[in-house]
């Protein structure tokens, strides 16, 4: 304790509050990335038979696919996606299954969109590498 002060309850409250807010803010940061996702890519991949409709399984499949082509297109699965998915799974302990389902679908949509962009980037890059003499 600082010797010139009595026990500072305001500082204790700020210390505990800021730790909680830090965790919430990281989750909010992760959540804000999911807003760009749409259902179009998801529907496309479902039509191709790549996805089953089970969000947990689809999420794993898309992660594996992205990790397969990641070195080529610089689109690795970001840590915040994995962190958010882990946090969402953790909330099943509290029984919020409907919310978990919605969030997992959001994550799958996001990963599906990234996978589609990764595929198009890969095609563009392959074309570039075949054209480029110094590749």
């Amino acid at each position: 304790m600082m010797q010139h002060q009595a026990f500072d309850w305001v500082s204790v409250a700020i210390f505990v509050g800021s730790a909680l807010v830090l965790l919430a803010a990281i989750l909010a940061y992760a959540y804000s990335h999911l807003l760009a996702a749409d259902a179009e890519s998801l529907a496309q991949l479902r039509a191709e038979g790549l996805l089953t409709g089970d969000p947990q399984r689809d999420f794993r499949t898309l992660n594996q696919l992205l990790s397969g082509i990641a070195p080529a297109v610089s689109m690795r699965t970001e840590y915040w996606v994995l962190f958010y998915a882990a946090a969402v799974r953790l909330t099943t302990v509290f029984g919020a299954r409907a919310w978990v389902e919605v969030q997992m679908r959001r994550l799958v949509s996001h990963q599906a969109l990234r996978y589609c962009y990764a595929q198009s980037s890969l095609a563009a890059m392959s074309a570039y590498s075949s054209d480029s003499p110094d590749f």
Binding site: S18, A19, V21, L22, A24, A25, I26, A28, Y29, Y31, S32
Partner: peptide
Amino acid sequence: AGFAILYS
């Protein structure tokens, strides 16, 4: 959200 992380 980045500001919230920064301030916390």
